[in-house]
Simulated assay, not measured.
Amino acid sequence: MYLTLLNGTGYVFNVEDYMELRRKYHIIGAFVGTANSKGWSSSGTAMPVALTKWETQLLIDEGICVLLSKAKDLTKEPTPESLETYKKAAAARIHAQGNALRAEKLRETERHLDKIVQGKRNKLLKQNKTQEAASLTAKDVLEEIDRSFVFDTQNALVELPCEHPTKHIGQLYTETIFDSSSLKYRVFHELWQLGKFVTAGDAFGADFLVYPGDPMLYHASHIIILQATPVIAPLELIAKVRLSVNVNKSCVFAYEQAENKKIIYQTVAWCNPSK
């Protein structure tokens, strides 16, 4: 599976690839496309999907994906032939939109054809055009609408293809995206190996959010906070745990043991003696 290098991380442009990453490998990323009110995203965003740097590094380390840099090919000056090909393809897409709109207009007319014909006949009668009113048929109305239809290209929808519409070449990118020895990566990797859905936790003042299932169906159950040492100031501890209580999630601190570099996870719950 291929990821495209953009802004220092991997992007997914293929819908089938993303669905496999999400369902099979529990990689979520974030939709960064625009102008979509339906589908997998409730925020109006759409494909492509930007992965975090640690998600990208994990997919590379696990041999699930390879990272490609397409900057050289996609930023070079287009040839006259490629420009002409693109213009013809764009014109064909706009022409297809016009045909689709024409067909829809005719279908909508047919739904109310009897009323439209009667209205036109009444208008002709008011103009003392009795013969024209008597000879007017439904076929005449449809043909008139078909002839008068004009598609204003200013109203055309601009297609933003999910994948690049023309052939291009990518170079394999082998540099490190995220430090695999860092505590953040190792915690993410361990939780991922446990089959958890893990996303960035910035919105909750944490490092990670952990979900019992796909975030489309479940709320996060835990917030993960990374600590350089097992020591934490009392006020900071209270603030973090109170936050987790307010958002109805368990608060987990993760830190590394100095002796053997093992990661320790410690859950802290808020206790209210009055209850």
Score class of each variant (00 low, 15 high):
167 K>Q: 06
94 I>N: 00
31 F>P: 10
157 L>W: 15
220 A>M: 10
52 T>Q: 14
164 H>G: 03
59 L>D: 05
44 G>W: 10
252 V>S: 14
196 K>G: 00
143 E>P: 03
86 Y>K: 14
156 A>V: 15
104 E>H: 07
272 N>W: 05
14 N>E: 13
273 P>W: 02
166 T>R: 13
272 N>I: 01
81 E>R: 07
180 S>D: 07
22 R>Q: 02
5 L>W: 03
177 I>L: 04
209 L>T: 09
134 A>V: 15
20 E>L: 07
264 I>R: 03
141 V>A: 08
156 A>I: 11
205 G>M: 08
105 K>S: 13
201 G>H: 08
238 I>T: 14
171 Q>D: 10
157 L>I: 15
116 I>N: 01
131 Q>I: 05
132 E>D: 15
274 S>E: 05
116 I>G: 05
262 K>L: 12
106 L>A: 08
267 T>E: 08
49 V>A: 06
218 Y>I: 15
45 T>K: 12
197 F>C: 08
270 W>F: 11
86 Y>L: 15
160 L>S: 09
174 T>I: 11
226 L>R: 15
247 V>C: 15
178 F>L: 00
176 T>H: 03
264 I>G: 00
261 K>C: 06
3 L>H: 04
196 K>A: 08
24 K>L: 09
86 Y>R: 15
2 Y>H: 13
229 T>K: 12
49 V>R: 06
4 T>Q: 14
132 E>H: 13
34 T>Y: 12
112 H>C: 07
270 W>H: 05
81 E>I: 09
102 R>V: 04
6 L>P: 01
189 H>L: 03
175 E>S: 13
176 T>W: 02
252 V>K: 06
137 T>M: 05
169 I>Y: 13
1 M>G: 04
207 D>Q: 02
10 G>S: 10
53 K>Y: 02
27 I>M: 10
248 N>M: 08
58 L>W: 09
242 R>W: 07
42 S>H: 05
5 L>E: 02
96 A>N: 12
104 E>I: 01
134 A>P: 04
252 V>A: 12
155 N>F: 03
150 V>L: 12
188 F>Q: 08
216 M>H: 13
178 F>W: 09
79 T>W: 01
